[in-house]
């Protein structure tokens, strides 16, 4: 009876996810195996193409760089925010939430104004006499990385503030009064306790960067193509849906593998669950 009531209430949402997400995505992945030339022909074709291999490696590379930078910036910032007095903490959290709730197009657009040929950075550098000709900053890997770091730092900060707030001040002071200097306190007390949060943040940023579209499209263009922009191009410009499905399948597998691996790591490395 209770089981029936539970299923009745949960069934509309369950059906929507099964029919609207699981089935179509499974069908997309399934079609990549059924092509003439063997079950793995589309994947062989993907990896045989030097251009596509470059795009995949570039996407992994950019996502890793963005994740590491966001981890370092996010961790330090979140630590300071978590130890700030109440009123200041609220203001800082608002300042981090606001960009997070502002759309990805708006946030990428901001960097278009800053990094453009006649953008703010170029004109400031020329006015200061540091350069005489505007630098080509847009459509480089650097511009994509900067904009993505900008995109994901708020997410990292907000993920870590909760984790770092949970570390009691007493623990840090106990460590200090037992003779640890601040570096030892940091590496032996704060960092190990923050590991689960760091892992969650890293997964969010890496998968977010790996599957992003708007930012590489606006700031990378054709020159810095990434998996997301390549997939869109294959699907909607050249209408090669088999190739687009293959890229989709690779994205799904990598995303889910990373989430699963990090979940396992988070469980093992969490010092609280011994």
């Amino acid at each position: 009876m209770k089981r029936l009531a539970g299923w009745t209430l949960a069934s509309p949402a369950t059906l929507l996810v099964l029919l609207g997400l699981v089935a179509p995505v499974a069908a997309t992945i399934y079609t990549t195996f059924g092509t003439p030339g063997g079950p793995l022909a589309t994947y062989q074709a993907f990896f045989a193409s030097g251009f596509r291999r470059t795009v995949l490696l570039r996407t992994i590379n950019v996502s890793l760089i963005v994740t590491v930078i966001a981890l370092v910036i996010g961790f330090i910032t979140a630590y300071v925010v978590s130890r700030a007095p109440g009123w200041l903490k609220s203001i800082l959290i608002v300042a981090a939430v606001f960009p997070l709730l502002t759309g990805v197009v708006v946030r990428s657009f901001a960097w278009l104004i800053i990094l453009g040929k006649n953008g703010i950075l170029n004109s400031s550098l020329i006015n200061l006499g540091i350069i005489s000709e505007p630098l080509q900053m847009l459509y480089t890997q650097g511009s994509v990385i900067v904009a993505m770091v900008y995109l994901f730092v708020p997410l990292m900060v907000l993920t870590l503030v909760g984790v770092l707030e949970a570390i009691p001040d007493d623990l840090i002071q106990a460590s200090a009064s037992l003779g640890a200097n601040s570096w030892a306190t940091f590496t032996q007390v704060i960092l190990p306790l923050a590991v689960p949060g760091l892992i969650v943040g890293a997964v969010l940023v890496f998968t977010g960067s790996f599957t992003s579209y708007a930012t590489p499209q606006l700031l990378g263009g054709e020159q810095v193509m990434m998996m997301g922009t390549l997939m869109y191009q294959q699907a909607m410009v050249t209408f090669d849906w088999v190739s687009a499905s293959t890229i989709a399948a690779i994205m799904v597998v990598i995303t889910i593998a990373i989430v699963a691996a990090m979940n396992a790591a988070a469980r093992r490395l969490n010092p609280m669950t011994v």
């Binding site: 996810v17 089935a23 179509p24 997309t28 997301g228 799904v252």
Partner: peptide
């Protein structure tokens, strides 16, 4: 787990799959 799937599956993949298979 099923209800977390929409966060795990890349949005681009969902969008493309809905276009292709729906």
């Amino acid at each position: 787990t099923l209800f977390i799937l929409p966060v795990l599956v890349p949005e681009l993949v969902l969008g493309f799959s809905l276009l292709k298979n729906l």
